[in-house]
């Protein structure tokens, strides 16, 4: 998979816009379902992403309103990829100042290398203070691709 464009990390199946979740677990489960629908990972990987927070706390909430859900590379990851969930109503992760969360990106990696360029491109977006809010307004995949491609 070419990875010079952030859009290649996602697919129409892995981008879930303006969904509803009642808890951080449901929010991560949605991100996991996007990875499963795109053929990136299995349901067990979704469980592993939830367990990572149960074990280590909400450290995946790395910016105001934004969580990067992920677990370790494992056999449950079929190929590297990302999913996106935007929530109509934000949920609490217990993450202090960064709560509540309204955008979750799910990340599945097969090793420590293949997803790095995409992650770097995502970082360049996240460094823009308005990026998370701009995602909340999205209602279709085509517009999402536009936003992350330029």
């Amino acid at each position: 998979m070419p990875n010079g464009n952030l859009a290649n990390a996602f697919s129409a199946e892995s981008v879930l816009l303006q969904r509803s979740a009642d808890s951080w677990r449901e929010a991560i489960a949605l991100a996991g379902s996007g990875l499963v629908a795109a053929g990136v990972a299995t349901d067990a990987y979704t469980q592993a992403m939830i367990e990572a927070v149960e074990t280590n706390g909400p450290y995946i909430v790395i910016a105001p309103g934004f969580a990067l859900a992920h677990a370790r590379p494992s056999a449950e990851v079929l190929r590297w990829g990302m999913s996106l969930v935007t929530l109509a109503e934000p949920v609490q992760f217990g993450a202090g100042d960064n709560d509540p969360v309204s955008v979750v990106v799910g990340l599945a990696a097969v090793d420590k290398q293949q997803h790095i360029v995409a992650l770097q491109l995502l970082a360049e977006k996240l460094i823009q203070p308005e990026f998370v809010n701009s995602l909340l307004k999205l209602s279709n995949f085509a517009r999402f691709v536009e936003i992350i491609s330029n």
């Binding site: 074990t55 992920h70 370790r72 997803h115 996240l126």
Partner: peptide
């Protein structure tokens, strides 16, 4: 926790 996401950022 995993060394592939948050730590890379």
């Amino acid at each position: 926790g995993e060394g592939i996401g948050t730590s890379v950022l």
